[in-house]
Protein backbone atom coordinates (compact mmCIF):
# COMPACT_ATOMS: atom_id res chain seq x y z
CA UNK A 1 0.00 0.00 0.00
CA UNK A 2 1.56 3.21 -1.10
CA UNK A 3 1.50 5.78 1.64
CA UNK A 4 0.43 9.30 0.89
CA UNK A 5 2.78 12.06 1.90
CA UNK A 6 1.10 15.37 2.60
CA UNK A 7 3.32 18.37 1.93
CA UNK A 8 2.34 21.79 3.28
CA UNK A 9 4.31 24.84 2.22
CA UNK A 10 3.38 28.37 1.21
CA UNK A 11 6.00 28.28 -1.49
CA UNK A 12 4.76 26.67 -4.67
CA UNK A 13 8.34 26.21 -5.78
CA UNK A 14 9.11 24.10 -2.75
CA UNK A 15 5.86 22.18 -3.11
CA UNK A 16 6.62 21.39 -6.70
CA UNK A 17 10.16 20.26 -6.03
CA UNK A 18 9.18 18.04 -3.10
CA UNK A 19 6.37 16.56 -5.11
CA UNK A 20 8.71 15.74 -7.96
CA UNK A 21 11.24 14.10 -5.69
CA UNK A 22 8.68 12.09 -3.74
CA UNK A 23 6.68 11.03 -6.76
CA UNK A 24 9.80 9.84 -8.46
CA UNK A 25 10.46 7.68 -5.42
CA UNK A 26 7.03 6.15 -5.80
CA UNK A 27 5.08 7.99 -3.13
CA UNK A 28 1.67 9.51 -3.56
CA UNK A 29 1.79 13.20 -2.77
CA UNK A 30 -0.91 15.56 -1.56
CA UNK A 31 -0.24 19.27 -1.24
CA UNK A 32 -1.55 22.33 0.56
CA UNK A 33 -0.35 25.93 0.35
CA UNK A 34 -1.31 26.95 3.86
CA UNK A 35 -2.02 25.61 7.29
CA UNK A 36 -5.70 26.38 6.87
CA UNK A 37 -5.81 24.44 3.61
CA UNK A 38 -4.00 21.56 5.23
CA UNK A 39 -6.50 21.36 8.08
CA UNK A 40 -9.34 21.49 5.58
CA UNK A 41 -7.82 18.62 3.58
CA UNK A 42 -7.39 16.49 6.69
CA UNK A 43 -10.88 17.27 7.87
CA UNK A 44 -12.01 16.34 4.39
CA UNK A 45 -10.75 12.80 4.87
CA UNK A 46 -7.16 12.83 3.69
CA UNK A 47 -5.25 10.19 5.64
CA UNK A 48 -1.56 10.64 4.96
CA UNK A 49 1.14 8.33 6.25
CA UNK A 50 3.40 11.31 6.77
CA UNK A 51 2.94 15.05 6.89
CA UNK A 52 5.74 17.43 5.95
CA UNK A 53 5.11 21.07 6.77
CA UNK A 54 7.04 24.27 6.45
CA UNK A 55 7.55 26.20 9.70
CA UNK A 56 7.28 29.70 8.28
CA UNK A 57 3.89 30.23 6.76
CA UNK A 58 1.66 33.29 6.83
CA UNK A 59 -1.24 33.22 9.25
CA UNK A 60 -1.06 29.68 10.61
CA UNK A 61 2.57 28.75 11.23
CA UNK A 62 3.84 25.22 10.87
CA UNK A 63 3.98 24.86 14.62
CA UNK A 64 0.41 25.98 15.07
CA UNK A 65 -0.57 23.55 12.34
CA UNK A 66 1.09 20.68 14.18
CA UNK A 67 -0.70 21.57 17.41
CA UNK A 68 -3.94 21.69 15.48
CA UNK A 69 -3.36 18.34 13.79
CA UNK A 70 -2.40 16.65 17.03
CA UNK A 71 -5.67 17.85 18.46
CA UNK A 72 -7.70 16.31 15.65
CA UNK A 73 -9.03 12.82 16.10
CA UNK A 74 -7.26 10.22 14.02
CA UNK A 75 -4.06 12.18 13.71
CA UNK A 76 -2.39 11.91 17.09
CA UNK A 77 0.07 9.30 15.84
CA UNK A 78 0.80 10.46 12.32
CA UNK A 79 4.45 11.32 11.80
CA UNK A 80 4.99 15.01 11.08
CA UNK A 81 8.21 16.55 9.83
CA UNK A 82 8.81 20.27 9.90
CA UNK A 83 10.88 22.01 7.28
CA UNK A 84 12.75 25.17 8.08
CA UNK A 85 15.86 26.93 6.96
CA UNK A 86 16.77 27.29 10.58
CA UNK A 87 19.08 24.50 11.53
CA UNK A 88 18.75 25.77 15.05
CA UNK A 89 17.98 24.04 18.26
CA UNK A 90 15.30 26.45 19.51
CA UNK A 91 13.07 26.00 16.49
CA UNK A 92 13.41 22.26 16.59
CA UNK A 93 12.68 22.17 20.28
CA UNK A 94 9.56 24.19 19.73
CA UNK A 95 8.46 21.88 16.95
CA UNK A 96 9.24 18.80 19.00
CA UNK A 97 7.36 20.23 21.95
CA UNK A 98 4.40 20.63 19.61
CA UNK A 99 4.80 16.90 18.90
CA UNK A 100 6.52 17.01 15.57
CA UNK A 101 8.34 13.80 14.78
CA UNK A 102 11.39 15.40 13.26
CA UNK A 103 12.64 18.09 10.99
CA UNK A 104 14.23 18.72 7.65
CA UNK A 105 16.58 21.56 6.94
CA UNK A 106 15.94 23.83 4.00
CA UNK A 107 17.00 23.72 1.29
CA UNK A 108 15.88 20.13 1.45
CA UNK A 109 18.25 17.93 -0.46
CA UNK A 110 16.53 15.11 -2.34
CA UNK A 111 18.78 12.49 -0.75
CA UNK A 112 18.06 13.77 2.75
CA UNK A 113 14.37 13.96 2.12
CA UNK A 114 14.14 10.43 0.79
CA UNK A 115 16.37 9.08 3.53
CA UNK A 116 14.19 10.50 6.26
CA UNK A 117 10.96 9.64 4.51
CA UNK A 118 12.02 6.07 3.92
CA UNK A 119 13.08 5.86 7.52
CA UNK A 120 9.57 6.77 8.57
CA UNK A 121 7.73 4.93 5.82
CA UNK A 122 10.02 1.98 5.12
CA UNK A 123 7.55 0.21 2.92
CA UNK A 124 5.79 3.22 1.51
Amino acid sequence: MASTIFVVDDSVTILMSMETILKKAGFTVAKAVSGEDAVAELEGGLKPGLIITDIHMPRMSGIELIRKIRGMSGFQFVPILVVSTESQQAKRDEARAAKATGWLVKPVQPDDLLKVVKQILPNG
Binding site: E36, S61, K91
Partner: peptide, 22 residues
Protein backbone atom coordinates in the same frame (compact mmCIF):
# COMPACT_ATOMS: atom_id res chain seq x y z
CA UNK B 1 26.35 30.22 12.40
CA UNK B 2 22.78 29.19 12.12
CA UNK B 3 21.01 30.96 14.89
CA UNK B 4 17.80 30.81 16.74
CA UNK B 5 15.10 33.14 15.70
CA UNK B 6 12.33 33.52 18.15
CA UNK B 7 9.12 33.31 16.28
CA UNK B 8 7.48 36.66 16.81
CA UNK B 9 4.00 37.27 15.57
CA UNK B 10 3.18 33.81 14.41
CA UNK B 11 -0.06 34.17 16.27
CA UNK B 12 -1.97 36.58 14.14
CA UNK B 13 -5.09 35.15 15.62
CA UNK B 14 -7.37 37.99 14.68
CA UNK B 15 -6.36 37.68 11.08
CA UNK B 16 -7.17 34.07 10.61
CA UNK B 17 -9.30 33.72 7.58
CA UNK B 18 -9.83 30.86 5.27
CA UNK B 19 -6.98 31.07 2.81
CA UNK B 20 -8.28 31.25 -0.69
CA UNK B 21 -7.28 28.45 -2.95
CA UNK B 22 -5.36 30.06 -5.69
Amino acid sequence: LPRSRPEAGEHLGHEIKQASRI
